[in-house]
């Protein structure tokens, strides 16, 4: 996937690998399927999903992604945000509206 520039609208994959067997996932459950905005690229790091099982771990881009906190929970203060490190393979680009 092309590099995601700051400001880009993205959606976290709605995927639940833990339902399919042993898995080690660093994308929190509460963000799956949620839309956010790229804040910055943090670098490239070995895929923890492989590291956890001592498999060869290719480096993947890691992004800081901002989410509207109230939209996720249907509660909370307007303007409050969540800022979370998410690996590129969990992110899909959302076409500009």
């Amino acid at each position: 996937m092309a590099e995601l520039a700051p400001g880009r609208l993205v959606q976290v994959r709605s995927d639940w690998p833990e339902a399919r067997g042993p898995a080690h996932i660093r994308t929190p459950h509460y963000l799956r399927g949620r839309r956010g905005r790229i804040v910055r690229r943090l670098g490239e790091f070995p895929n923890p999903e492989d590291l956890a099982f001592a498999r060869p771990a290719p480096k993947l881009p890691l992004y800081h992604v901002a989410f509207d906190q109230a939209a996720i929970w249907g509660e909370g203060a307007t303007g409050d945000e969540l800022l979370v490190e998410i690996f590129g393979h969990w992110l899909q680009e959302v076409p500009a509206q």
Binding site: R26, L42, F45
Partner: peptide, 15 residues
Amino acid sequence: PENVRMRVVDSTADY
């Protein structure tokens, strides 16, 4: 204060 926005940083990865 209500005019202060909050940003919660969930430390999920390598930083």
